Simulated assay, not measured.
Amino acid sequence: MSASIAIFALTQKGVETARRLVAVLPADCYVLDRYASKDEISFTSLKNIVADKFSKYESHIFVAASGIVVRMIASLLKSKADDPAVVVVDQEGEFAISLVSGHLGGANELARLIGDKIGAIPVITTATDCAGVPSMDLIARDQGLIIGDIGLIKHINAAILDGEKVPVYDPDGFLDLSAYSDYFIVVDDLAVLHKSRCGVVVDWHVHDLPERVLALYPRCLTLGVGCRRGVPADEILELIRSVVADNGIALESISCMGSIDAKSDEAGMIAAAQVLGLDLNFFSAAELDEIEVANPSGMVMKHMGVNGVCEAAAMKLANVTQILVPKTKSARVTAAIAKRI
Rank of each mutant, 00 (worst) to 15 (best):
V24Y: 05
L25W: 13
L25E: 11
P26V: 03
A27L: 01
A27Q: 02
A27R: 00
A27C: 03
D28P: 01
C29S: 01
C29G: 00
Y30Q: 12
Y30G: 06
L32H: 13
L32F: 13
Y35L: 12
Y35W: 14
Y35M: 01
Y35S: 00
S37R: 15
S37E: 14
E40L: 13
E40R: 12
I41H: 15
I41V: 15
I41K: 15
I41L: 15
L46R: 10
K47F: 02
K47Q: 11
N48M: 05
N48E: 15
I49G: 01
V50E: 07
V50F: 09
A51N: 09
A51W: 00
D52G: 00
K53I: 09
F54D: 01
S55D: 12
Y57N: 07
Y57H: 08
E58T: 08
S59T: 03
F62S: 07
F62G: 02
V63Q: 08
A64R: 00
A65H: 06
S66G: 00
G67K: 06
I68W: 04
I68K: 02
I68S: 05
V69A: 08
R71P: 11
I73C: 07
S75M: 01
L77T: 05
A81D: 10
D82G: 03
A85I: 07
V87D: 08
D90G: 11
E92R: 05
G93L: 06
E94F: 13
E94A: 12
A96N: 04
I97Y: 12
I97L: 15
I97T: 13
S98H: 09
L99S: 02
S101T: 07
G102T: 09
L104H: 03
G105Q: 04
G105A: 03
G106R: 07
N108F: 06
E109Y: 03
E109W: 03
L110D: 09
L110W: 12
A111H: 05
A111Q: 02
A111K: 04
A111P: 05
I114Y: 08
I114N: 04
G115E: 14
G115V: 11
G115W: 11
D116L: 11
I118F: 10
A120C: 04
P122D: 07
P122N: 06
V123R: 05
V123M: 06
V123E: 05
I124D: 09
I124L: 10
I124C: 10
T126I: 13
T126V: 11
A127T: 13
T128L: 02
D129P: 08
D129V: 14
C130Q: 09
C130E: 03
A131V: 08
G132L: 04
G132F: 04
D137H: 14
D137V: 07
D137R: 01
R141K: 15
Q143W: 03
Q143G: 01
G144P: 11
G144F: 12
I147L: 12
I147V: 13
I147W: 10
G148C: 09
G148T: 09
D149L: 06
I150V: 15
I150F: 15
G151D: 14
I153F: 13
I156R: 01
